[in-house]
């Protein structure tokens, strides 16, 4: 049992992380091994971590949400717009931003379940609609002067770490609890595992899908609000950059711990592995396009790994079943 838990197949990302740390420690020891580098790395990857954790929900329910990047962008602009144009306080603005993100997610969910549009296409279409909404709200201009108080929201520190790091942990813990420890989580995984079978077992699969996408939208909107707070600016262009890292982390995470299931712990570890990988290369003087290359490669590798793992499981299944199986009509 312990051996299986510690096997490369189960926790490859942890071994990769150890290897990366070892390599960078030898390669660029005087920069890589400083506390400030690690602190900023955690702070930088916190927002991606929040988005990726949110993304685990629809993926577990069997839906792709390609609008997740646009939802981050929407959060960033909506919170800035509410603070400046509408003059709301930070707390109200953030809550309303969450509502906006959830609404976009829920609407995508309705497109999938009621209009019967494939999640891939529905969310791709929605992402374009949301990008248009962002441009309309912001006139494609940055929104400045969000106020001192709001900036503290993302830049303030607690026990040596910035707020986003703690918030990522809190969001991760909540989503983990829901997915792993509650009946709702079980129903989400069942819906993603076999929609028909789940429906015939009495699961309200449409509600689960809409709910998962709405929660993902709200969490992405929250990450967007944090991004605006950190920059003290509502930037209409930041959203799409979150899409690929979040998917890379969620897919890489699905190969960890839970043998093929999208899961929160794996996703958080994956975010961290990717961040360390990129950071070390940057410190070593790698060019600016390295993060894109690294994340893209990681996504492809993760999906490839997931496929291989699945095929290996099926091969084992075939071997195990052949003892009993009877084939006829």
């Amino acid at each position: 049992m312990l051996l299986r838990t510690l096997s490369f197949r189960n926790i490859s990302a942890i071994y990769i992380l150890i290897a990366l740390v070892a390599i960078y420690s030898l390669w660029v020891p005087d920069t890589f091994l400083t506390a400030s580098v690690w602190r900023s790395m955690l702070d930088n990857s916190a927002l991606v971590a929040i988005v990726a954790v949110g993304l685990v929900l629809p993926l577990a329910a069997g839906a792709f949400d390609l609008a997740v990047g646009a939802e981050v962008g929407l959060g960033a602009i909506v919170v800035a717009w509410l603070l400046t144009e509408q003059g709301l306080g930070p707390a109200q603005a953030v809550v309303l931003t969450l509502v906006a993100g959830a609404a976009v997610g829920a609407f995508t969910g309705i497109l999938i379940t009621v209009a019967n549009i494939d999640s891939f296409i529905a969310s791709l279409g929605m992402s374009s609609v949301v990008l248009a909404a962002i441009a309309w709200l912001s006139d494609s201009q940055q929104i400045l002067n969000l106020g001192e108080g709001f900036q503290d929201f993302a830049t303030g520190q607690l026990f040596g770490f910035t707020h986003p790091v703690w918030l990522a942990l809190v969001v991760g813990l909540i989503v983990w609890y829901v997915l792993e420890r509650t009946p709702v989580g079980r129903r989400i995984y069942a819906t993603g595992g076999n929609l028909n079978a789940a429906r015939l077992a009495g699961v309200r699969t449409s509600l689960i899908l809409v709910g998962a996408l709405a929660a993902c939208g709200a969490i992405a909107g929250f990450a967007g609000a944090l991004a605006s707070s950190r920059l003290a600016t509502g930037d209409p262009t930041i959203g799409p950059a979150y899409l690929l890292p979040a998917y890379a982390a969620a897919f890489l995470g699905s190969t960890q711990f839970r043998s093929g299931r999208y899961n929160v712990a794996g996703t958080l570890v994956a975010v961290f592995v990717l961040a360390v990988g990129v950071k070390g290369l940057q410190l070593g003087g790698a060019p600016v396009w390295i993060p894109d290359l690294f994340n893209g490669m990681a996504l492809l590798l993760a999906v490839g790994m997931a496929r291989t793992q699945r095929r290996a499981r099926q091969a084992r299944a075939a071997r195990g079943v052949r003892r009993h199986e009877v084939k006829d009509e």
Binding site: Y189, G193, N194, N196, A197, A198, L200, G260
Partner: peptide, 8 residues
């Protein structure tokens, strides 16, 4: 297709 969730 309908009876069970094979991956669970």
């Amino acid at each position: 297709a309908d009876g069970a969730i094979m991956t669970m």
